[in-house]
């Protein structure tokens, strides 16, 4: 069915999930975290994943980030079947193609911000690590804290270091699992402003969030419920503008979020707009896919 989808005739999508299942075994009990998720995400998309707690958002993100493998189903990353990859190949993909941003930052203690940002580069063995790490820190406007240790940084600064770390390897996708979850709303908006500007520069970003105003800044919202996609919609321009306007004006202005997204809007592959995994072209906005689940 994916073969029939219009995009597959043009370019391979960045991410292609087909009927993904993930089952955890806890003792004798089976927990179905994902029950048949199908999804296409193209280059330079800016996707928010929402849904109640336990709906499988993190599980999906971990699979997309090659940190975990699905129990069933197929995951193609740039057309490559991830489930066929060896452990070390997966590690390579994590190192070069994926940039993860975690809710709780996950910086190495007693290690300078710069060294933290350099970490992925030491594993991929690229050259000019220092230069690239400095560049990444500059992009999150944290160059002046390069030699500070995590315990000398505020939460927002820590998260910015983590974003720089994800950026350092120039990944295909940035995956952020509740990046603002541990931050107050002002700081959270600052972080989202960074994502906005990265998206404006052409970066593909997927953000898991519980907050509507965070989700509204993204171009597309996917809602999960009980391990299934119940909503996949494009956000309207003015909706996003509203999302940004709820943010602190200063934060938005600092990164020029609204102009940026507007300017790069055209670079998104057109075929992905509102395409449902089953290949049918849905309405561009507000399509609720009712599949018998409580919604």
């Amino acid at each position: 069915m994916i073969a029939d989808s219009p995009i597959s005739k043009t370019t391979a999508p960045l991410i292609e999930l087909a009927d993904l299942h993930k089952v955890y075994r806890v003792g004798t009990e089976l927990v179905h975290a994902l029950r048949g998720v199908s999804l296409l995400i193209g280059e330079n998309e800016y996707v928010a994943i929402m849904g109640p707690s336990g709906s499988g958002k993190s599980t999906m993100m971990n699979i997309i980030g090659c940190l975990d493998v699905p129990t069933e189903g197929r995951y193609l990353l740039r057309g490559q079947d991830v489930s066929r990859m060896s452990q070390s190949r997966l590690a390579r993909v994590r190192g070069r193609q994926i940039g993860f941003v975690f809710q709780s930052f996950e910086l190495l203690p007693r290690t300078s911000a710069l060294k933290n940002v350099e970490l992925p580069l030491t594993y991929s063995g690229v050259r000019h690590r220092r230069k690239r790490a400095i560049e990444a820190l500059r992009r999150v406007s944290l160059l002046d804290r390069a030699h500070h240790h995590p315990n000398q940084l505020s939460g927002g600064q820590k998260q910015r270091v983590a974003i720089a770390r994800a950026l350092a390897q120039e990944p295909d996708i940035i995956l952020a699992d509740e990046p603002t979850g541990n931050l107050d709303s002002t700081t959270g908006n600052e972080i989202m402003a960074i994502f906005d500007s990265l998206h404006a520069e052409g970066q593909t970003i997927i953000v898991v969030t519980h907050e509507d105003h965070v989700a509204r800044r993204c171009r597309r919202t996917i809602k999960l419920m009980d391990g299934q996609i119940v909503l996949d919609q494009m956000n309207e321009e003015r909706e996003r503008a509203k999302g940004i306007s709820t943010a602190e004006g200063a934060a938005a202005a600092a990164t020029g979020g609204s102009e940026g997204t507007a300017a790069t809007g055209g670079s998104r592959p057109h075929g992905t707009e509102g395409v449902r995994p089953d290949g049918k072209r849905g309405a561009a906005t507000g399509t609720v896919i009712e599949e018998g689940g409580p919604s």
Binding site: L67, R92, R94, F102, E106, L108, L119, Y123, R165, Q169
Partner: peptide, 16 residues
């Protein structure tokens, strides 16, 4: 353990 998880998530292989 978390540090190990983080290192793995940024590209560390088992041998690393």
């Amino acid at each position: 353990t978390r540090e190990i998880g983080l290192r793995k998530s940024v590209g560390a292989r088992r041998r690393d």
